[in-house]
Design a protein around this nucleic acid. Sequence first.
DNA 1: ACATAATGTTAAGTCTATTGTACATCGTGA
DNA 2: TCACGATGTACAATAGACTTAACATTATGT
Lengths: 75, 75
Amino acid sequence: MGKKEFEITNNIRTLRFFAGEMTQQQLAEKTNASRQTIIAIEAGKYSPSLDLAFRIAHAFGKPIGEVFEYKKTEE
Amino acid sequence: MGKKEFEITNNIRTLRFFAGEMTQQQLAEKTNASRQTIIAIEAGKYSPSLDLAFRIAHAFGKPIGEVFEYKKTEE
DNA sequence: ACATAATGTTAAGTCTATTGTACATCGTGA
DNA sequence: TCACGATGTACAATAGACTTAACATTATGT
Protein backbone atom coordinates (compact mmCIF):
# COMPACT_ATOMS: atom_id res chain seq x y z
CA MET A 1 0.00 0.00 0.00
CA GLY A 2 2.02 2.36 -1.32
CA LYS A 3 2.32 5.90 -2.13
CA LYS A 4 -0.44 7.67 -3.89
CA GLU A 5 0.09 8.52 -7.48
CA PHE A 6 -1.22 12.05 -7.14
CA GLU A 7 -0.97 14.62 -4.42
CA ILE A 8 -2.63 17.91 -3.61
CA THR A 9 -0.46 20.90 -2.89
CA ASN A 10 -1.41 24.47 -2.01
CA ASN A 11 -0.02 27.96 -2.27
CA ILE A 12 -1.70 29.38 0.80
CA ARG A 13 1.44 30.56 2.47
CA THR A 14 2.56 32.43 -0.63
CA LEU A 15 -0.87 33.89 -1.20
CA ARG A 16 -1.06 35.14 2.38
CA PHE A 17 2.25 36.81 1.85
CA PHE A 18 1.12 38.59 -1.30
CA ALA A 19 -2.12 39.55 0.38
CA GLY A 20 -0.17 41.92 2.58
CA GLU A 21 0.98 39.38 5.15
CA MET A 22 -2.52 38.24 5.84
CA THR A 23 -2.58 36.36 9.10
CA GLN A 24 -3.74 32.76 9.49
CA GLN A 25 -6.22 34.10 11.97
CA GLN A 26 -7.56 36.60 9.44
CA LEU A 27 -7.81 33.95 6.76
CA ALA A 28 -9.70 31.75 9.20
CA GLU A 29 -12.17 34.55 9.86
CA LYS A 30 -12.56 35.38 6.19
CA THR A 31 -13.27 31.77 5.31
CA ASN A 32 -15.37 31.07 8.36
CA ALA A 33 -13.05 28.27 9.44
CA SER A 34 -11.04 27.71 12.59
CA ARG A 35 -7.45 28.76 12.87
CA GLN A 36 -6.36 25.17 13.47
CA THR A 37 -7.98 24.11 10.24
CA ILE A 38 -6.09 26.77 8.30
CA ILE A 39 -2.82 25.73 9.92
CA ALA A 40 -3.38 22.05 9.14
CA ILE A 41 -4.34 22.68 5.52
CA GLU A 42 -1.55 25.16 4.89
CA ALA A 43 0.89 22.61 6.32
CA GLY A 44 -0.57 19.91 4.09
CA LYS A 45 -1.67 17.67 6.96
CA TYR A 46 -4.90 16.98 5.17
CA SER A 47 -6.79 18.45 2.27
CA PRO A 48 -9.92 20.52 2.81
CA SER A 49 -13.45 19.88 1.70
CA LEU A 50 -14.27 21.30 -1.71
CA ASP A 51 -16.42 23.84 0.04
CA LEU A 52 -13.64 25.19 2.22
CA ALA A 53 -11.22 25.04 -0.71
CA PHE A 54 -13.54 27.37 -2.63
CA ARG A 55 -13.90 29.69 0.35
CA ILE A 56 -10.13 29.96 0.66
CA ALA A 57 -9.72 30.65 -3.05
CA HIS A 58 -12.47 33.25 -2.80
CA ALA A 59 -10.70 34.92 0.13
CA PHE A 60 -7.69 35.46 -2.12
CA GLY A 61 -9.73 36.35 -5.19
CA LYS A 62 -8.12 33.51 -7.10
CA PRO A 63 -9.58 30.58 -9.03
CA ILE A 64 -9.44 27.37 -7.04
CA GLY A 65 -6.97 25.82 -9.45
CA GLU A 66 -4.45 28.51 -8.59
CA VAL A 67 -4.62 27.84 -4.88
CA PHE A 68 -4.68 24.05 -4.94
CA GLU A 69 -2.88 21.87 -7.42
CA TYR A 70 -3.21 18.21 -8.25
CA LYS A 71 -0.09 16.62 -9.62
CA LYS A 72 1.75 13.38 -10.00
CA THR A 73 3.95 12.62 -7.06
CA GLU A 74 7.58 12.59 -7.97
CA GLU A 75 10.75 11.18 -6.47
CA MET B 1 -30.59 29.23 10.17
CA GLY B 2 -30.55 30.66 6.90
CA LYS B 3 -29.59 30.00 3.42
CA LYS B 4 -25.99 29.96 2.50
CA GLU B 5 -24.68 32.81 0.48
CA PHE B 6 -22.73 30.60 -1.89
CA GLU B 7 -23.37 27.22 -3.39
CA ILE B 8 -21.36 24.64 -5.27
CA THR B 9 -22.70 23.35 -8.54
CA ASN B 10 -21.26 20.78 -10.90
CA ASN B 11 -21.39 19.87 -14.57
CA ILE B 12 -20.85 16.16 -14.17
CA ARG B 13 -23.95 15.12 -16.01
CA THR B 14 -23.07 17.27 -19.01
CA LEU B 15 -19.48 16.15 -18.97
CA ARG B 16 -20.51 12.51 -18.90
CA PHE B 17 -22.68 13.18 -21.89
CA PHE B 18 -19.87 14.78 -23.86
CA ALA B 19 -17.54 11.99 -22.82
CA GLY B 20 -19.53 9.64 -25.01
CA GLU B 21 -22.32 8.88 -22.57
CA MET B 22 -19.92 7.79 -19.91
CA THR B 23 -21.80 5.83 -17.29
CA GLN B 24 -21.91 6.75 -13.60
CA GLN B 25 -20.48 3.33 -12.97
CA GLN B 26 -17.58 4.00 -15.33
CA LEU B 27 -16.91 7.36 -13.74
CA ALA B 28 -16.93 5.69 -10.33
CA GLU B 29 -14.34 3.20 -11.50
CA LYS B 30 -12.18 5.86 -13.13
CA THR B 31 -12.18 7.98 -10.00
CA ASN B 32 -11.86 5.09 -7.62
CA ALA B 33 -15.10 6.04 -5.87
CA SER B 34 -18.33 4.17 -5.29
CA ARG B 35 -21.26 4.48 -7.65
CA GLN B 36 -23.45 5.85 -4.85
CA THR B 37 -20.96 8.59 -4.17
CA ILE B 38 -21.00 9.66 -7.81
CA ILE B 39 -24.78 9.66 -7.83
CA ALA B 40 -24.98 11.75 -4.67
CA ILE B 41 -22.43 14.29 -5.87
CA GLU B 42 -23.89 14.58 -9.35
CA ALA B 43 -27.28 15.16 -7.76
CA GLY B 44 -25.80 17.80 -5.48
CA LYS B 45 -26.71 16.01 -2.25
CA TYR B 46 -23.34 16.91 -0.85
CA SER B 47 -20.07 18.22 -2.18
CA PRO B 48 -17.05 15.97 -2.50
CA SER B 49 -13.72 16.21 -0.80
CA LEU B 50 -11.17 18.28 -2.70
CA ASP B 51 -9.38 15.06 -3.45
CA LEU B 52 -12.32 13.39 -5.12
CA ALA B 53 -13.20 16.63 -6.89
CA PHE B 54 -9.75 16.62 -8.47
CA ARG B 55 -10.06 12.96 -9.43
CA ILE B 56 -13.38 13.64 -11.15
CA ALA B 57 -11.96 16.62 -13.02
CA HIS B 58 -9.01 14.49 -14.02
CA ALA B 59 -11.31 11.77 -15.33
CA PHE B 60 -12.79 14.31 -17.72
CA GLY B 61 -9.49 15.96 -18.53
CA LYS B 62 -10.82 19.30 -17.35
CA PRO B 63 -9.56 21.82 -14.79
CA ILE B 64 -11.39 21.55 -11.50
CA GLY B 65 -12.96 24.97 -11.95
CA GLU B 66 -14.74 23.77 -15.05
CA VAL B 67 -16.34 20.84 -13.31
CA PHE B 68 -17.32 22.53 -10.06
CA GLU B 69 -18.42 26.11 -9.68
CA TYR B 70 -18.81 28.31 -6.67
CA LYS B 71 -21.36 31.05 -7.03
CA LYS B 72 -23.71 33.30 -5.17
CA THR B 73 -27.06 31.72 -4.54
CA GLU B 74 -29.79 33.47 -6.38
CA GLU B 75 -33.56 33.68 -6.08
C1' DA C 1 -42.73 -11.58 -21.25
C1' DC C 2 -38.06 -11.82 -19.69
C1' DA C 3 -33.43 -10.22 -18.98
C1' DT C 4 -30.24 -6.64 -18.57
C1' DA C 5 -28.07 -2.08 -17.91
C1' DA C 6 -28.39 2.40 -15.88
C1' DT C 7 -30.08 5.12 -12.38
C1' DG C 8 -31.87 6.06 -7.79
C1' DT C 9 -32.76 5.23 -2.67
C1' DT C 10 -31.98 3.83 2.04
C1' DA C 11 -29.45 2.24 6.05
C1' DA C 12 -25.49 1.23 9.02
C1' DG C 13 -20.90 1.69 9.61
C1' DT C 14 -16.09 3.77 8.85
C1' DC C 15 -12.95 7.37 8.01
C1' DT C 16 -11.52 12.01 7.79
C1' DA C 17 -12.26 16.94 8.06
C1' DT C 18 -13.39 20.40 11.35
C1' DT C 19 -14.16 22.33 15.82
C1' DG C 20 -13.15 24.05 20.65
C1' DT C 21 -9.96 24.22 24.27
C1' DA C 22 -5.71 24.45 26.18
C1' DC C 23 -0.85 25.03 26.21
C1' DA C 24 3.94 25.95 24.17
C1' DT C 25 7.25 28.55 21.29
C1' DC C 26 9.19 32.44 18.97
C1' DG C 27 10.01 37.21 17.77
C1' DT C 28 9.05 42.13 18.62
C1' DG C 29 8.31 46.20 21.05
C1' DA C 30 7.69 48.87 25.44
C1' DT D 1 12.07 41.76 31.70
C1' DC D 2 7.20 41.62 30.57
C1' DA D 3 3.48 41.55 27.40
C1' DC D 4 1.62 40.45 23.07
C1' DG D 5 0.69 38.67 18.46
C1' DA D 6 1.48 34.97 15.34
C1' DT D 7 2.30 30.27 14.85
C1' DG D 8 2.27 25.38 16.12
C1' DT D 9 0.76 20.97 18.65
C1' DA D 10 -2.27 17.74 21.13
C1' DC D 11 -6.69 15.88 22.34
C1' DA D 12 -11.56 14.72 22.54
C1' DA D 13 -15.82 15.46 20.32
C1' DT D 14 -18.86 16.40 16.30
C1' DA D 15 -20.09 16.60 11.42
C1' DG D 16 -19.98 15.17 7.01
C1' DA D 17 -17.96 12.38 3.19
C1' DC D 18 -17.62 7.75 1.64
C1' DT D 19 -18.37 2.71 1.60
C1' DT D 20 -20.85 -1.74 1.10
C1' DA D 21 -25.07 -3.97 0.51
C1' DA D 22 -29.61 -4.50 -0.68
C1' DC D 23 -33.61 -3.30 -3.20
C1' DA D 24 -36.68 -0.40 -6.59
C1' DT D 25 -37.51 1.88 -11.08
C1' DT D 26 -37.15 2.73 -15.82
C1' DA D 27 -35.88 1.91 -20.46
C1' DT D 28 -34.00 -1.21 -24.05
C1' DG D 29 -33.20 -5.41 -26.53
C1' DT D 30 -34.51 -10.23 -27.54
